[in-house]
Amino acid sequence: MAFANLKDVYIDQLQDLYSANKQARLATQRLAAAATNADLQKALEAGVIGIENGMSALDVIITGHGETPNGEYCKGMEGLVKEAHAHALDATFTDDDVRDAVIITQYQRMVHYALAGYGCVLAFAKRLDLDAEAKTIDKCLAETYEGDRTMTDIATGGINKKAA
């Protein structure tokens, strides 16, 4: 894709974020299945729903510009998903709390990537005076922050202490 203006960059980044969410959704489903703490499992399942909601919102925005959401493949999230598999899903653990602590770590790394993506496209939408899209993206960003805070609360509320 040739970038002629900020709108081109905006669409590209929306597509990249859609791809990132698509990859993170599957990884989060697998992390939820591997988690042993009930609160963690519930939070990860809620995370899957949040990711799906974000994907739906991005789909509407992208197709509204006459583009397809699947126009980009996010290599950044691909690496984070590989890390989640290597460190949380495929690794051997002798303690469930340690695995749960690692699951939170890997999930939060993926979430932080999404936070950066949503923050960038929000700034672009505002600059392009796409107020309705900015409002939708801001909602996705806020929900992603909330999911991140929930994971921090679960980690600091007991899992990290038990894992120590």
Rank of each mutant, 00 (worst) to 15 (best):
M1T: 08
A2C: 03
A2P: 01
F3G: 07
N5C: 10
K7A: 12
Y10E: 04
Y10A: 06
I11M: 09
D12N: 12
D12Q: 11
Q13W: 11
Q13V: 10
L17G: 03
Y18F: 15
Y18T: 01
S19E: 05
A20W: 03
K22V: 07
R25Y: 13
L26K: 12
L26M: 15
T28L: 05
Q29Y: 09
Q29S: 08
T36R: 10
T36P: 01
L40N: 12
Q41P: 02
K42S: 13
A43C: 04
A46W: 01
G47L: 06
I49V: 09
G50D: 02
G50R: 03
G50Y: 00
I51G: 02
I51F: 00
I51L: 12
N53Q: 15
G54S: 13
G54H: 07
A57F: 00
L58S: 04
L58A: 02
D59C: 02
V60N: 08
V60T: 14
I61E: 00
I61K: 00
I62Y: 00
I62Q: 00
G66A: 06
G66P: 08
E67Q: 14
T68N: 09
P69T: 03
P69A: 06
N70G: 11
E72T: 03
Y73L: 11
Y73A: 13
C74W: 01
C74M: 04
C74E: 07
K75M: 09
G76I: 07
M77Q: 03
M77H: 04
M77N: 03
H85P: 07
A86K: 12
A88P: 04
T92M: 09
D95M: 08
D96N: 15
V98C: 08
V98M: 14
R99Y: 02
D100I: 03
V102I: 12
V102D: 02
I103W: 01
T105F: 12
T105H: 10
Q106S: 11
Q106F: 07
Q106K: 15
Y107F: 12
Q108V: 09
Q108G: 11
R109N: 11
M110H: 06
V111F: 06
H112P: 07
L115W: 01
A116N: 05
G117T: 07
Y118T: 10
Y118F: 12
G119L: 05
C120S: 11
C120F: 13
C120L: 13
A123W: 04
A123P: 03
A123Y: 06
F124D: 09
R127M: 10
R127V: 11
L128T: 10
D129K: 13
D129F: 01
L130K: 11
L130P: 03
K135W: 04
K139P: 01
K139G: 06
L141V: 09
L141T: 10
E143V: 02
Y145S: 06
E146M: 06
E146R: 09
E146P: 02
G147E: 10
R149K: 15
T150V: 15
T150Y: 02
T150I: 14
M151D: 00
T152I: 06
D153E: 14
D153C: 05
G157K: 05
G158P: 07
I159E: 05
N160K: 08
K162C: 05
A163G: 02
A164G: 09
